[in-house]
Design a binder for these strands. Sequence first.
DNA 1: TTTTCAATGTGATGGCCATCACTCTTCCTT
DNA 2: AAGGAAGAGTGATGGCCATCACATTGAAAA
Lengths: 238, 238
Amino acid sequence: MPTPYGFEVEGHCETCKKKSQGFFCDLPLPVSRDLDILRHSATYPAGAVLFLEKQDPHGVFILCGGKVKLSISSSEGKTLILRLAEPGEILGLAAVFTGRPYEATAETMHPSQVAFIRRSDFLRLMEKHKEIYQAATRQLSRLYRGACEQLRTIGLSGSAPEKVARLLLEMSSGRAPACTGVSITMPLTHEEIASCIGSTRETVTRTLSDFKAKRLVAFRGSTLTIENREALEDIGGM
Amino acid sequence: MPTPYGFEVEGHCETCKKKSQGFFCDLPLPVSRDLDILRHSATYPAGAVLFLEKQDPHGVFILCGGKVKLSISSSEGKTLILRLAEPGEILGLAAVFTGRPYEATAETMHPSQVAFIRRSDFLRLMEKHKEIYQAATRQLSRLYRGACEQLRTIGLSGSAPEKVARLLLEMSSGRAPACTGVSITMPLTHEEIASCIGSTRETVTRTLSDFKAKRLVAFRGSTLTIENREALEDIGGM
DNA sequence: TTTTCAATGTGATGGCCATCACTCTTCCTT
DNA sequence: AAGGAAGAGTGATGGCCATCACATTGAAAA
């Protein structure tokens, strides 16, 4: 099944197309032909590790379908989740480009389709096609902005409620409309939320209970609804 | 004074040249000619603000000489220093490329020479010269890696000593040799160190005193010498 | 069904460090 | 030399939340 992305995608094409701003999609034909030759596609089960933090960068992974968790961890075993990658993203870009080790660990959260391109092949491809530079710059810019946002959340907010509120608002953004009443499907456990904001599971549980008691949010299964965006923004210092 | 960077630099050329890996230097002649036409050079005094967080990105600033502090701040007035830019760096790159507001505030620490290029001009220039894409990707990759490191320091380390140790080690890295005995000229006040690691001035003062008492570091004026790198790495969890 | 394990809820405790309130030093200015 | 301001050192205090410990729910396997 040929697609506008330059490689075959089973199942999640629609998602990829919808989120294509800034992603690795819609490449001109000559570029996608070259990509097709070099890529190695595979389907990974949930929980598979694509690459490990501090490993030498053998290449980039293009996420075609599924969801991948990117995280860093300390020597004491604590973990910080950087972001969840969506279909269309290139993983390992900064590492491959600088030649330094992967800066994070990539692990599939669901069964995922992934295309791999060897470092040397990818670098040669970049030299050949300006469009790839363009896509890479776009993605890296977004990554950097995201990291800054996370630094703001973790580094500048004193209290745990502040961090949780910011995370919820961030997760709900990008969805229309950005106002009270938005619902999001929470893909993270309390434990994982904690490791997005540098806190602990217990604190997240307590904070969310508190938010619920104050009618700021509501839960229906794994669906979270923001019932009072104003108040949340207030708590988040925004 | 013509230079290999495509624009005139007074005073800090050597620095720039030494740190040129990944920077905006050594461009081919046609590129630097085009840059020369579009750039607006200026010298700013210490403490000047090049751009503000959340401002619309009018363009990029190329730091030719001096030093610039990049920081983000919260609504309550707390500040987090992201990094200190050295000559050769392009400031505002991610913002200009994505079209979203500047992600940080840029403020000169010393009198600095800065070249400005309007957003539209810069984007057109990128389209024309692949070398600029290349330089941009390199710089963005480094920025992203740096942000990840800072996230690791701030988000994964529980204690203040851990954060301070990591910061000192990071500041001393990049200098030869990376072992016990390295001296660095500390360009930051305790207050600024605190806002690099999301802590407070008092805590930094106390922690550094403690390190000094334990013979991990020594001070001579504004020069800091690492006397026991092993122990520092141990505290930093590295 | 029963089993089982992950996820969640909740109390108790204590330590780290942010905060406040000073003093002291060191320059730079006048 | 006196004045002032920025930086640095230091004690006291209290609150937030990490940590430990255990109960409870829920949802997949067996």
